[in-house]
Simulated scan of single mutants.
Amino acid sequence: MAERPGDRPEAPVVSLAEKRHQHVDDPLTAGRELVHVPTTEKAMAPDDDPRLGDVDEWGRSERMRGLVRRAFDPVYRHYFRAEWEGLEHIPTDGGALLVANHAGAVPSDAPVIMHGIETELERPVYGLADNFFRKIPVVGTLWSRAGGLPAHPDNAYRLLNGQGQLVLVFPEGVKGTSKTIANRYKLARFGRGGFVEIAMRAVAVMGNEEANPILWRLPGAKMLGVPYLPVTPQSLVLGPLGTLVPLPAKFKLRVLPPVTFDVPPSQHRYSRTRIMDGSQEIQGKIQEALYEMVAERRNWWGG
C-alpha cells in the first residue's frame, strides 16, 4: 500500500490522501492501474532482493537505460542539438517533480529531457505518461524498462517522497500532443491540478512542436483505440510510418526556478481553489518562458 502523506513530516504541499477517489482529467491522475510497490522497506533491501536481473520495482532496467542512452546520444547531440539553460535549478539529490510542456504527434520531448538530465547530472529520471503506452505489446515493455510508468499520484508520491527520485510529468497529456501546428507553443489546459501537491521544477521545451508537427487530425481514432490519428509532413512523404521519424528541429530547454506554495504541509484536505491557482501559476510561468524563447530564436531548425 502506498504511504499516506500524513505519515511523513516532509510531506508535499497538498495531501494525496483522497486523490484516488477523485476524478481528474490530467495525466498525473489518469492511470487506471498501479505498478507493484514493495510493502516494506525490507523488501527493498539489496540482500533480500529476489530478482535475478537489474529491473527495479517500477520495471526500469539500468542496463536497458544505458543502451538507450548510447543509442540516443547522437540524436540528442547532433540531430536535435539540445541546449539547456538553468540546469542548476534541478537538485543533485532528493526528489523533485519536473513539469514540462508537451507536443508532437510522437513526442520527442520526454526522451530529450530524460537523456539530458541523466547525462548532464548523472541522475535517473522516471517519466510518467498515459497508460496507453504500457498496453502496446513490446513497446510497453521497452517503455517500462527505459524508465516510463503510468501517470498515477501514488506512483509519483512513492518515487518522490519515498525514494527521492526525479519524476517527469506532462500535465497537458494527450491534449498537448494532439495540438495542430496552428496552436504550437500555446499550452493546453493543465487538467485539475493533480501535480500541484509536490514541490516541483518547471521545464519549458522549445523544438518539440517542430520535430513532429501535426498538420491535422483524422477522425476515427476512438474506433481504433488510439488517442488521435495525426497527419504530419513526414507521413505525407513516407506514409503512416513517417510519423515515427522526427524532423531535425533544434531543442532548447529552460529549467525555471522551483515553485513553492505558502500553505502548511500534511493537511488532510486542501482548497480546490488553491490547487487550481497553483496549477494555473505553473502553466503561466511555462507559457511566459515559451513566448520569450520563441521570440529569441532565429528560425525553427537552427535555434
Rank of each mutant, 00 (worst) to 15 (best):
D49Q: 10
D73C: 03
A82T: 15
R81V: 04
R77C: 04
E85I: 07
A105T: 00
R20I: 01
H78Q: 02
D26W: 01
S108Y: 06
L97A: 04
I90Y: 02
L28K: 00
H36Y: 08
D25N: 11
P27M: 07
G95T: 11
H78A: 10
G104C: 05
M64T: 14
W84R: 04
R65D: 13
Y76K: 05
S108M: 15
T92A: 03
L34F: 10
I117S: 04
E57D: 10
H36N: 04
D56W: 00
D73F: 02
V37T: 11
Y79K: 05
W84V: 02
G53W: 11
D25A: 08
S108N: 13
M44E: 15
S61M: 06
D49S: 03
P107F: 01
H78G: 07
E118R: 12
H115G: 14
E118N: 09
Y79E: 04
A105L: 11
P46H: 09
G116A: 07
K42S: 05
F72R: 13
T92C: 06
D26N: 06
D26H: 00
G66V: 05
H115K: 13
T40R: 11
V112K: 09
P111C: 05
D26E: 10
L67E: 07
P46A: 03
T92N: 07
A82K: 11
Y79L: 07
R60F: 06
T92H: 08
G31C: 08
I90R: 07
R51K: 02
V24Y: 03
L97F: 00
V55S: 13
D109H: 08
D56T: 02
R32E: 12
D109S: 14
A82Y: 04
R60H: 03
D49I: 04
A71Y: 13
D93E: 14
K19M: 08
R65M: 13
R60G: 07
R60P: 01
R32V: 03
L52I: 12
V37I: 15
P74I: 10
L97P: 14
H23I: 10
H102E: 02
G59Y: 05
L87F: 00
V106M: 12
F80H: 10
L28T: 15
G104S: 10
H23C: 10
D73P: 02
M64P: 09
T119Q: 06
R32K: 09
L67P: 06
H23Q: 12
D54F: 07
A110V: 14
R32A: 06
A71P: 09
D109F: 05
W84P: 02
M114C: 15
A71I: 15
G66A: 12
M44G: 04
H21Y: 12
R69N: 15
V68Y: 02
P38K: 09
D48K: 09
S61K: 01
I117Q: 01
G116D: 12
A45M: 11
R51Y: 03
R20G: 01
E118M: 11
H23T: 14
S108K: 09
V55G: 15
D93Y: 06
D109N: 08
D26G: 10
T39F: 09
G94I: 07
I90W: 03
R70Y: 05
H115Y: 15
D47L: 14
V75Q: 04
K42P: 01
E88I: 03
T39N: 08
P111A: 07
